[in-house]
Protein backbone atom coordinates (compact mmCIF):
# COMPACT_ATOMS: atom_id res chain seq x y z
CA UNK A 1 0.00 0.00 0.00
CA UNK A 2 0.94 3.63 -0.32
CA UNK A 3 2.04 5.23 2.94
CA UNK A 4 1.74 8.94 3.59
CA UNK A 5 1.98 11.31 6.52
CA UNK A 6 0.16 14.53 7.16
CA UNK A 7 1.93 17.74 6.28
CA UNK A 8 2.75 20.12 9.14
CA UNK A 9 -0.43 21.95 10.11
CA UNK A 10 1.07 25.40 9.54
CA UNK A 11 1.93 24.45 5.97
CA UNK A 12 -1.67 23.31 5.41
CA UNK A 13 -3.05 26.55 6.86
CA UNK A 14 -0.77 28.55 4.59
CA UNK A 15 -1.97 26.51 1.59
CA UNK A 16 -5.67 27.11 2.24
CA UNK A 17 -5.33 30.72 3.43
CA UNK A 18 -6.12 32.24 -0.01
CA UNK A 19 -9.48 30.38 -0.15
CA UNK A 20 -12.80 31.02 1.60
CA UNK A 21 -14.63 27.77 1.04
CA UNK A 22 -12.64 24.55 1.32
CA UNK A 23 -13.65 20.90 1.03
CA UNK A 24 -11.39 18.49 2.95
CA UNK A 25 -11.54 15.25 1.02
CA UNK A 26 -10.49 11.96 2.59
CA UNK A 27 -9.50 8.81 0.73
CA UNK A 28 -10.78 5.47 1.99
CA UNK A 29 -7.94 3.24 0.78
CA UNK A 30 -4.21 3.05 1.63
CA UNK A 31 -4.00 6.28 3.59
CA UNK A 32 -6.98 5.22 5.71
CA UNK A 33 -5.04 2.10 6.70
CA UNK A 34 -2.03 4.14 7.82
CA UNK A 35 -4.40 6.48 9.66
CA UNK A 36 -3.44 9.65 7.83
CA UNK A 37 -6.07 10.23 5.17
CA UNK A 38 -9.41 8.54 5.91
CA UNK A 39 -12.82 9.95 6.76
CA UNK A 40 -11.96 10.36 10.43
CA UNK A 41 -8.78 12.28 9.60
CA UNK A 42 -10.72 14.45 7.14
CA UNK A 43 -13.22 15.31 9.87
CA UNK A 44 -10.45 16.15 12.37
CA UNK A 45 -8.53 18.28 9.88
CA UNK A 46 -11.70 20.14 8.91
CA UNK A 47 -12.43 21.11 12.50
CA UNK A 48 -8.77 22.04 13.14
CA UNK A 49 -8.92 24.33 10.11
CA UNK A 50 -12.17 25.93 11.26
CA UNK A 51 -10.60 26.63 14.63
CA UNK A 52 -7.41 27.99 13.12
CA UNK A 53 -9.44 30.14 10.72
CA UNK A 54 -11.42 31.62 13.58
CA UNK A 55 -8.27 32.24 15.59
CA UNK A 56 -6.54 34.00 12.71
CA UNK A 57 -9.70 35.93 11.79
CA UNK A 58 -9.92 34.28 8.37
CA UNK A 59 -13.19 34.11 6.49
CA UNK A 60 -12.94 30.33 6.05
CA UNK A 61 -15.68 27.73 5.85
CA UNK A 62 -14.70 24.08 5.76
CA UNK A 63 -16.67 20.90 4.97
CA UNK A 64 -15.36 17.37 4.72
CA UNK A 65 -16.16 14.38 2.62
CA UNK A 66 -14.55 11.03 1.83
CA UNK A 67 -14.65 8.61 -1.09
CA UNK A 68 -13.37 5.06 -1.38
CA UNK A 69 -10.51 5.98 -3.72
CA UNK A 70 -9.40 9.27 -5.19
CA UNK A 71 -7.46 7.49 -7.95
CA UNK A 72 -10.49 6.06 -9.72
CA UNK A 73 -13.17 8.08 -11.49
CA UNK A 74 -16.06 5.76 -10.59
CA UNK A 75 -15.88 6.66 -6.89
CA UNK A 76 -16.22 10.41 -7.47
CA UNK A 77 -19.94 9.68 -8.03
CA UNK A 78 -20.20 8.93 -4.32
CA UNK A 79 -19.23 12.46 -3.26
CA UNK A 80 -21.79 13.90 -0.83
CA UNK A 81 -20.65 17.48 -1.55
CA UNK A 82 -20.03 18.95 -4.99
CA UNK A 83 -16.37 20.02 -5.16
CA UNK A 84 -17.23 22.49 -7.92
CA UNK A 85 -18.97 24.61 -5.27
CA UNK A 86 -15.72 25.08 -3.33
CA UNK A 87 -12.78 27.42 -3.87
CA UNK A 88 -10.38 24.57 -3.20
CA UNK A 89 -10.29 20.88 -2.36
CA UNK A 90 -7.80 19.86 0.32
CA UNK A 91 -7.10 16.24 -0.48
CA UNK A 92 -6.05 13.70 2.13
CA UNK A 93 -5.11 11.20 -0.56
CA UNK A 94 -1.62 10.23 -1.68
CA UNK A 95 -0.06 12.18 -4.52
CA UNK A 96 -1.81 9.89 -7.00
CA UNK A 97 -5.20 10.89 -5.61
CA UNK A 98 -4.32 14.60 -5.57
CA UNK A 99 -3.06 14.43 -9.15
CA UNK A 100 -6.00 12.39 -10.40
CA UNK A 101 -8.58 14.61 -8.68
CA UNK A 102 -6.89 17.66 -10.21
CA UNK A 103 -7.76 16.16 -13.59
CA UNK A 104 -11.31 15.34 -12.51
CA UNK A 105 -11.86 18.91 -11.22
CA UNK A 106 -10.44 21.16 -13.94
CA UNK A 107 -11.74 24.41 -12.36
CA UNK A 108 -10.95 23.70 -8.72
CA UNK A 109 -7.47 23.71 -7.19
CA UNK A 110 -6.73 20.40 -5.42
CA UNK A 111 -4.20 20.82 -2.60
CA UNK A 112 -2.19 18.07 -0.91
CA UNK A 113 -2.63 17.71 2.84
CA UNK A 114 -0.26 14.74 2.95
CA UNK A 115 3.33 14.01 2.04
CA UNK A 116 3.30 10.71 0.16
CA UNK A 117 6.26 8.80 1.54
CA UNK A 118 6.57 5.22 0.25
CA UNK A 119 5.13 1.86 -0.78
CA UNK A 120 5.12 -0.07 2.43
CA UNK A 121 3.48 -2.43 4.87
CA UNK A 122 2.66 -2.35 8.55
CA UNK A 123 5.39 -4.16 10.48
CA UNK A 124 4.07 -3.50 14.00
CA UNK A 125 1.13 -1.71 15.55
CA UNK A 126 1.35 1.82 14.14
CA UNK A 127 4.62 1.23 12.25
CA UNK A 128 4.95 1.06 8.48
CA UNK A 129 8.12 0.35 6.56
CA UNK A 130 9.22 0.79 2.98
CA UNK A 131 9.24 -2.42 0.91
CA UNK A 132 9.23 -1.43 -2.76
CA UNK A 133 10.38 1.42 -4.98
CA UNK A 134 8.30 0.59 -8.03
CA UNK A 135 11.60 0.45 -9.94
CA UNK A 136 10.03 -1.36 -12.89
CA UNK A 137 12.44 -4.32 -12.91
CA UNK A 138 11.79 -6.58 -9.93
CA UNK A 139 14.77 -8.42 -8.42
CA UNK A 140 13.01 -10.08 -5.48
CA UNK A 141 13.39 -13.55 -7.02
CA UNK A 142 17.13 -13.55 -6.29
CA UNK A 143 17.21 -11.44 -3.14
CA UNK A 144 15.11 -13.66 -0.90
CA UNK A 145 12.09 -11.40 -1.28
CA UNK A 146 13.88 -8.43 0.30
CA UNK A 147 14.31 -5.50 -2.05
CA UNK A 148 17.82 -4.01 -2.30
CA UNK A 149 16.48 -1.08 -4.30
CA UNK A 150 14.04 -0.06 -1.57
CA UNK A 151 15.81 -1.39 1.52
CA UNK A 152 19.46 -0.61 0.84
CA UNK A 153 19.98 3.13 1.35
CA UNK A 154 22.14 3.18 -1.77
CA UNK A 155 20.06 0.74 -3.87
CA UNK A 156 23.18 -1.37 -4.43
CA UNK A 157 22.81 -4.60 -6.40
CA UNK A 158 25.95 -6.63 -5.71
CA UNK A 159 25.87 -6.78 -1.93
CA UNK A 160 26.53 -4.65 1.14
CA UNK A 161 28.90 -1.71 1.14
CA UNK A 162 31.46 -1.05 3.88
CA UNK A 163 28.89 0.95 5.82
CA UNK A 164 27.07 -2.14 7.09
CA UNK A 165 27.49 -2.36 10.84
CA UNK A 166 26.06 -5.01 13.15
CA UNK A 167 23.16 -5.44 10.76
CA UNK A 168 22.48 -1.70 10.64
CA UNK A 169 22.96 0.90 7.91
CA UNK A 170 25.54 3.69 8.16
CA UNK A 171 22.70 6.16 7.63
CA UNK A 172 21.15 5.40 11.01
CA UNK A 173 21.43 2.92 13.86
CA UNK A 174 17.64 2.56 13.63
CA UNK A 175 17.80 1.41 10.02
CA UNK A 176 18.42 -2.21 9.09
CA UNK A 177 21.08 -2.84 6.45
CA UNK A 178 19.02 -4.19 3.55
CA UNK A 179 21.88 -6.34 2.32
CA UNK A 180 22.36 -7.80 5.80
CA UNK A 181 18.70 -8.87 5.70
CA UNK A 182 19.14 -10.31 2.21
CA UNK A 183 22.31 -12.18 3.23
CA UNK A 184 20.61 -13.70 6.28
CA UNK A 185 17.55 -14.69 4.29
CA UNK A 186 19.53 -16.26 1.43
CA UNK A 187 21.64 -18.10 3.99
CA UNK A 188 18.47 -19.51 5.60
CA UNK A 189 17.13 -20.51 2.20
CA UNK A 190 20.44 -22.12 1.26
CA UNK A 191 20.66 -19.76 -1.72
CA UNK A 192 23.86 -17.78 -1.14
CA UNK A 193 24.73 -18.73 -4.73
CA UNK A 194 22.36 -15.92 -5.71
CA UNK A 195 24.50 -13.43 -3.79
CA UNK A 196 27.61 -14.70 -5.60
CA UNK A 197 26.20 -14.02 -9.07
CA UNK A 198 27.44 -10.91 -10.85
CA UNK A 199 24.68 -8.36 -11.27
CA UNK A 200 25.33 -6.03 -14.20
CA UNK A 201 24.52 -2.31 -14.00
CA UNK A 202 20.77 -1.85 -13.75
CA UNK A 203 18.47 -0.59 -16.46
CA UNK A 204 17.17 2.53 -14.74
CA UNK A 205 15.14 3.46 -17.82
CA UNK A 206 12.42 1.24 -16.34
CA UNK A 207 12.56 3.40 -13.24
CA UNK A 208 11.95 7.17 -13.28
CA UNK A 209 14.97 7.73 -15.53
CA UNK A 210 12.91 6.57 -18.50
CA UNK A 211 10.47 9.44 -18.00
CA UNK A 212 6.80 9.20 -17.06
CA UNK A 213 5.60 5.60 -16.91
CA UNK A 214 2.35 4.26 -18.28
CA UNK A 215 0.62 0.90 -18.43
CA UNK A 216 -1.75 0.20 -21.28
CA UNK A 217 -3.68 -3.04 -21.57
CA UNK A 218 -5.12 -3.24 -25.05
CA UNK A 219 -7.36 -6.22 -24.27
CA UNK A 220 -9.14 -4.16 -21.58
CA UNK A 221 -9.70 -1.31 -24.00
CA UNK A 222 -11.10 -3.78 -26.56
CA UNK A 223 -13.49 -5.35 -24.04
CA UNK A 224 -14.70 -1.90 -23.02
CA UNK A 225 -15.26 -0.99 -26.66
CA UNK A 226 -17.13 -4.24 -27.39
CA UNK A 227 -19.49 -3.83 -24.45
CA UNK A 228 -20.13 -0.23 -25.50
CA UNK A 229 -21.10 -1.46 -28.96
Amino acid sequence: MIVAERKPFDEIVEMVAPYKKVLVLGCGSCVTVCLTGGERQAEILASQLRLAGRKKGLDLSVDFDCITRQCDREFTENLKFDPAEYDAVLSLACGVGVGFMSGVLPDTPVLPALNTTFYGAGVAEGVWEEYCHGCGDCVLAWTGGICPIARCSKSLINGACGGTNDGKCEVSQDMDCGWHLIYKRLQELGRLDELRKMRPPRDWSKNRSGGVRRLSREEMAEIAQESAE
Binding site: S155, L156, N158, C161, G163, E170
Partner: peptide
Protein backbone atom coordinates in the same frame (compact mmCIF):
# COMPACT_ATOMS: atom_id res chain seq x y z
CA UNK B 1 34.45 2.73 -4.10
CA UNK B 2 30.75 2.77 -3.28
CA UNK B 3 31.03 6.05 -1.35
CA UNK B 4 29.55 7.11 1.97
CA UNK B 5 25.89 8.03 1.97
CA UNK B 6 25.11 11.76 1.74
CA UNK B 7 23.52 11.42 5.18
CA UNK B 8 27.08 11.09 6.58
CA UNK B 9 28.27 14.41 5.20
CA UNK B 10 27.60 18.13 5.12
CA UNK B 11 25.11 18.22 2.22
CA UNK B 12 22.43 16.03 3.68
CA UNK B 13 19.72 17.32 1.36
CA UNK B 14 21.64 16.24 -1.75
CA UNK B 15 20.34 13.49 -4.00
CA UNK B 16 22.31 10.24 -3.93
CA UNK B 17 23.13 8.80 -7.34
CA UNK B 18 24.46 5.23 -7.01
CA UNK B 19 23.59 4.51 -10.64
CA UNK B 20 26.45 1.99 -10.61
CA UNK B 21 27.77 0.20 -7.55
CA UNK B 22 31.49 -0.44 -7.00
CA UNK B 23 31.30 -3.70 -8.98
CA UNK B 24 29.59 -1.86 -11.82
Amino acid sequence: LTGDHVAMGDHREAKCVFDLDSVG
